[in-house]
Structures are given as C-alpha cells and as structure tokens.
C-alpha cells in the first residue's frame, strides 16, 4: 500500500475535474469548460467543438418559436401505470419533477419568423423521450388541430427510448396512431417537417420520425431503429464509425439535410415560406 497518494495535476480541460454546478459546465464531447451563460446563448452547442447538447422540450420551443406566440395545446393528459410496471410510477414522478412536464412532450401552435405552425417536441429528459399513450395522444391531437386550422406540422424528436415499454403493447400502438394522423395531414394537403435530434430511436424513428415531407437532423445525432448495442450483440462485430449518425443517414438517403442548431429556425422559416398557405 502506498503511503503517499500521487496527485495528478492537469489543466482545466482535464476530464476528471469537478465543476461547481451552475456557473460553469463541461462539454461532454471535448471536455471544454464553458461558461453556462455562454452555452445558453449558444443554444447549448459547445463553442469549441460544435457538439450539440440535448435540450429540453421547453427550451426547444423557446429556441424555435417567436417570443409570445406559443400557445400550448390545451388538453391536460397524465400518464397511467395501467400495467403495474416495476418502478413506472416512480419514474414518472421523477421525470415530472425534473422537467416540469406531465409527460415527455410539448405541443402547441406558434409562429416561426411570423409564419404560423403546429409544433410537437419530445423531451429526452423525460424517460428518454419515450412514447407512451400520452405522447401518442398529444401528437395525434396537435396533428388533428393542424388539419382543422390548416397549419403545417413540425415535430422535433428527441426520443432515444422509442416506444415506452412500461405501457406495453399500447405504446406500440401509438406508432400506428401517430402515423395514421400524419396520413390524414398529408391527405389534407398539409406539410409535415420532421426534425430529428440526438437521440431518436426505435418506435419513434419507425413512425413519425421517418415520415417527414422534409426531414432535417441536427449534426451527429444518433438516429436508429435498432440501437447500436443490440446490433453489435446480434452480429458480434464493432460498428463502423459514424454509423446511425445524421450524416450517415443523409448519405444513405433518409434525411434531407443536416442543420446546425443556430440555423434551424431560419431553415424552418424558409421551408414554411415555401409551403405558404
């Protein structure tokens, strides 16, 4: 046993440094220490390495919708633990406290550079943004409202959890429900713009995630059906670098463009302008 412990000296970007919470934060990618206020102003994108941190649904709404124009869809829906699934109730309560949301989604209408739109944003801080009955229902309602009001629909996905297993088969059926609502929107001649952010997986990718008339992704977002670990276990091989990231999906023809967060609102506004009234 060593009598003296070796103290390692490092500089501020060393990954083992504890950061007092609040004032400063550390980029999870390049480990750079960033002044929190600066990170906030930079829309949670690291100024050094351009890594796009995850943002909550509420922050996303604020980033995209013109100030004072957002009107939340009025229904108040609460998730239910109808399967008595282990720890589901606790998880719901924790997530509600952490996000201030009833479930992992914000929906409503608002304006983007003056252009009206319906918007849905899932929240990865609420049980990985997974889709249970509430998320599916809220999306169906906002899409139906858009049809009624003749509005385009934008859905920003941040749902690594896919379909929420804690609600069993009814979660799976939310994929059918949201996709059918988007079919109605499409038949009504209204556009749907899908924005995929890190992470989007499973049943969310395989429903509203992949159904955009136009599909945008943020840089380097994980967008997949089967998760990388599941695939690695199946084929017993390491996956190639960049596999299932935004740029990979663009290369394979599944998304239209990779857009940095700072340019997202501007791009959406242009697209909305194209679709017009």
């Amino acid at each position: 046993m060593a009598l003296f412990k070796k103290i390692k000296f490092g500089h501020a970007s060393d990954k083992n440094v504890d950061i007092p919470s609040g004032l400063w934060s550390k980029c999870e990618n390049c480990k750079e220490i960033i002044y929190s206020k600066q990170l906030e102003e930079n829309l949670k994108v690291c100024p050094k390495c351009r890594h796009h941190q995850r943002v909550s649904a509420k922050e996303r709404v604020k980033q995209l919708i013109d100030e004072g124009t957002f009107e939340a869809e009025s229904s108040k829906l609460m998730p239910l633990d109808f399967l008595n699934f282990p720890e589901y109730n606790e998880k719901i309560k924790k997530a509600q406290a952490a996000t201030g949301l009833d479930d992992g989604i914000c929906t409503g209408t608002g304006k983007i550079h003056g252009r009206p739109t319906a918007l849905g944003v899932t929240d990865s801080f609420f049980m990985m943004g997974s889709m249970g009955s509430v998320v599916g229902e809220k999306l169906a309602r906002i899409i139906e409202l858009a049809i009624k009001k003749r509005l385009p629909v934008i859905i920003v996905s941040s749902s690594g959890g896919g379909a929420r297993m804690h609600e069993g088969i009814l979660s799976l059926m939310q994929m059918a429900k949201t996709s059918a609502a988007l079919k109605k929107l499409s038949d009504a001649g209204l556009p749907y713009i899908a924005v995929l952010t890190d992470p989007t997986g499973g049943g969310v990718t395989a429903s509203f995630g992949m159904l955009g008339d136009i599909t945008i992704a943020e840089p380097n977002a994980l967008i997949c059906f089967a998760g990388p670990r599941v695939i690695e276990q199946t084929i017993k091989q390491k996956l190639p670098k960049g596999f299932q990231r935004s740029e990979f999906l663009k290369e394979h023809g599944f998304i239209d463009m990779v857009v940095e967060r700072k340019d997202l609102k501007e791009n959406l506004a242009k697209i909305l302008k194209f679709f017009g009234n």
Partner: peptide, 26 residues
Amino acid sequence: GAYPGIGAEERGVAEAIAKNLKELSG
C-alpha cells in the same frame, strides 16, 4: 421482430415500417 443488422439500418428499416404504418392506415 425486424432484423437488427447493419444493412437493415443502412437501407432504412425504420422508414420502411413507418411508411407502412402511414400508408396502410389509408
């Protein structure tokens, strides 16, 4: 379940399923 393989992801298994959900509904 759908096959969790590299090729399936490259060729958009999520898109294929999503499109079926949408189209079959109508």
